[in-house]
Write a protein that binds this DNA or RNA. Sequence first.
DNA 1: TTTTGGTTACACAGACCTGTGTACTTAGGC
DNA 2: GCCTAAGTACACAGGTCTGTGTAACCAAAA
Lengths: 212, 212
Amino acid sequence: MYLGYDWQVLSSEQDAFRCMAPPPAPQTMKERILQTADKLFYLQGIRAIGVDTIAAEVGISKRTLYNHFPSKDALIAAYLERRFVAQRPSDKPPAEQILATFDSLERRFAAKDFRGCPFVNAVAELGPADRAVKKIAVAFKESRRLWFRDRLSELGVTDADALATQLVLLVDGSIAQDLVRDDPAMARAAKEAAKVLLRNAGVDVGGNDSAV
Amino acid sequence: MYLGYDWQVLSSEQDAFRCMAPPPAPQTMKERILQTADKLFYLQGIRAIGVDTIAAEVGISKRTLYNHFPSKDALIAAYLERRFVAQRPSDKPPAEQILATFDSLERRFAAKDFRGCPFVNAVAELGPADRAVKKIAVAFKESRRLWFRDRLSELGVTDADALATQLVLLVDGSIAQDLVRDDPAMARAAKEAAKVLLRNAGVDVGGNDSAV
DNA sequence: TTTTGGTTACACAGACCTGTGTACTTAGGC
DNA sequence: GCCTAAGTACACAGGTCTGTGTAACCAAAA
């Protein structure tokens, strides 16, 4: 669901390119700063990381950082905007796409550097006063919900809207649970629940193991 | 699910006692500090609030605060431990208890001072390094899951364990969604999804509106 | 009355934070 | 060679933070 901060991961979610040597320094300074800020903000918390730390990690002076971003707030906003990437279109059948979401989630949970949803974390950390952060977080959550809704509509589900909301609850619930428990099984549990909900809405999700 | 920081709310979830006048100062100094710390930590964030702010809000000197808590970390731990209150036993049938959880959640969402789950927020804010915080957060989440599991066992559900996990996903998912969207409808959506999951497990939850 | 325990007021150390100012260097384009 | 743009090094202002040290105060117990 969330693309990684690493450029390699960002360039392609497939593992095929993962080991390709990156061109020495093809990135702009702004992008280099954002990559480092992303890593530190996400893994350690926005409030926990100072601009000095980011500049030092990039290997630049603090002055240079402030030449590219007018303030830390601007850097935070850019960090979140960069995290907000659209989901790639897929040829697979919609039901498969929906369920694949949870598999992808499980893979992310298994990675040692998964630390929950950056948008939820930012809202939790920065408080309700920070309207800019809240706005982008809402937009992100809604975009994910609409993605589910569109897949469900393709499947001819009657109340795609309501079911889409229920599915994002499972997604965010498993993220929150994994954040505190470090247990990728939460993604599998979410997937099983999603299957029940889908089946209940008349969607064929294969292998009807659990009968009523 | 989470009892409020307010002593009145803490003393009883029912509204009956809400307007009872509190005894002028029956509380110990420690409790007064914890009440204020709870309010500020929860509403504005642990990192956002300094000990000076807490002391000033209580109306005591910072020295007094440090005479009761050796460090801010100790205060944070006490804050979370105080939030970790057991669920009251109930006479109502288990299925009703389970669904009532989501109604209670919806009421909390509607309150303007709801700011998500304090345990999840603390983990998100303080990072994975803070083992003490993580430990109590895990314990809390598991206690809630076990509560669901026990109710499901009473209902004779076969795989109570797995279903309990799915239900806490809905709870935490709705909390996370409400945190960013401020939309109590998330609790209703979670309740509807819970009904489907329960029904699928053979539990009678009344009004079988949505057919397979 | 004296003692004792909790409290207050206040200063302060030492660290960290964001953001700015300034003078120097370095590399590329003209 | 010269000019410009970008980056560097570094100091610093002004603020916040946690935590401590100290002397005075006050009320209740002995």
